[in-house]
Design a protein around this nucleic acid. Sequence first.
RNA 1: GCCGCGUUCGUCUAGGGGUCUAGGACGCCGCCCUUUCACGGCGGUAACACGGGUUCAAAUCCCGUACGCGGUACCA
Length: 497
Amino acid sequence: MPDSDTAAPRVRFAPSPTGYLHIGGLRTALYNFLFARRHGGVFILRIEDTDRSRFVDDAEADILSALDWSGLAFDEGPGKPGRVGPYRQSERRALYAEHAEQLVRDGAAYLAFDTPGELDLMRDRLATEANPNPRYDATTRLAMRNSLSLGDEASARLVNDGVPYVVRLRVDPGSDVRFTDSVRGEVTFSTDAVDDQVLVKSDGMPTYHLANVVDDHLMGITHVIRGEEWLPSTPKHMLLYRAFGWEAPAMAHLPLILSPAGGKLSKRNADTLGIPVFTSAYREEGYESSALLNYLAFLGWNPGDDREVYTLEELVQVFSIERVGSAGVHFDVAKLQWFNLQHLRSVDPTEIAARSRPALEAAGITFDASYTARVVALLSERLAFPQDLATTWRWFFDDPVSYEEQGVRKRWKEDSAGLVRTLADRMPSDEGFDHDGLESVLRDLAEERGIGAGRIIHPVRLAVSGVTTGPGLFELLVVLGRDTCVRRLVRAAECLG
RNA sequence: GCCGCGUUCGUCUAGGGGUCUAGGACGCCGCCCUUUCACGGCGGUAACACGGGUUCAAAUCCCGUACGCGGUACCA
């Protein structure tokens, strides 16, 4: 329906299966998704697997499952055929070859026979302090082995002899390439600074530059939304569109996600700071996908008002590419965790309980769905992650094995053991074992002894939980149940004296 | 080195010439909730990189410098 409307945008997320889905990649996918949904357009997933030397076998499966987990459903892509497939570049080789041939015929590209060794030699020869990275361009190409320097007959002979070659874009210096970027405005590059980019590698595979332009055109992509690392190669793409005589899609280059330590978020400078770089790790750490997406959406974009907590559906309603910022953004786990807390609040306790099961069982706790759900409900907004039940809140499942030292020093007095024992003796029977019943028993005891309620409340909390923090005392006692409470009170009285 | 992009509290940001003694959120700190608390309420800390212009008026426009980031591959 939307794809039959020519006015509807078509966007794509085009990851390379050279690794698992990076968190920055997820954000790029998210912005593409939001843009497509916001404008009633089509969101396409395209696998850019043209680098067979860096190909990772299960990367595509990881990308697919990460997208599925986060709810970024694509309309067309591998396993979801559309009219412009296939959606894996390795399955589109013939298309690139045809187009590369066309460029060569038109004189916009040429054949180059230089071996990797020869290229190194050229760079070594030409490299100076002032120019450490010599380019293969108009200033150097005539000194190299290509169809321009050798002539058509000579190069045809080489091709016939089976000499490997690449196809390079012929970039004419002396002009400017100008385009409007939706997030940065007008951007200009001089063709003097653009090299004769390789379009087809000697293994016959296209490079990203060729494949991306050919596919975006053939797939009817109207808006290219990608990371800023692509900005410097955009002039090459523009030159290609021009050479093919095609209209270029609108461009939007997203600010990069930076590590708090500086630089792109990578395994090296992020993992060590506790910031996972792969999407799957966020799932494993117990994040809500909606919270991750919410956080990612706000990394480089904001709706312009003070509201920050949004579901994916709500983000679709307010997203606009114009409000995307242009400066690099630092990843902040603390804020992500806050978003997670916000999102977890709206998840049903039964569901959270179910999700905590693996962690509880790994901790040796026998899973009890209804009891766990009651604990979750009691903890409500205090619970940051389902698996925290097995750590921070473990005492809801196992008797405390120790008592927080500082808490004992501060709250456990000479009379505590006696008070706790007395309370254990007076624990109401099953019918009276509720919030009010417990409170009156405790307060009566305080009054009887002529002491403040806190004198009993604090030791009791310590006795049953081992710590000094948690939900309201009476509510938690009710959840723990009479037998557990009595047992823990008596035990604490013995241990702490 | 060269090319490009960027620069408002520690972080994410609002701001698009006067309403800015710069607002919000996270974090942090304090107080309150006389039962706790990582919850909640209240309050606080903290920023327009620097230098020149333009203008009656600049965080907002222009130039330069510094700094950061990206690119500079037969990787994407």
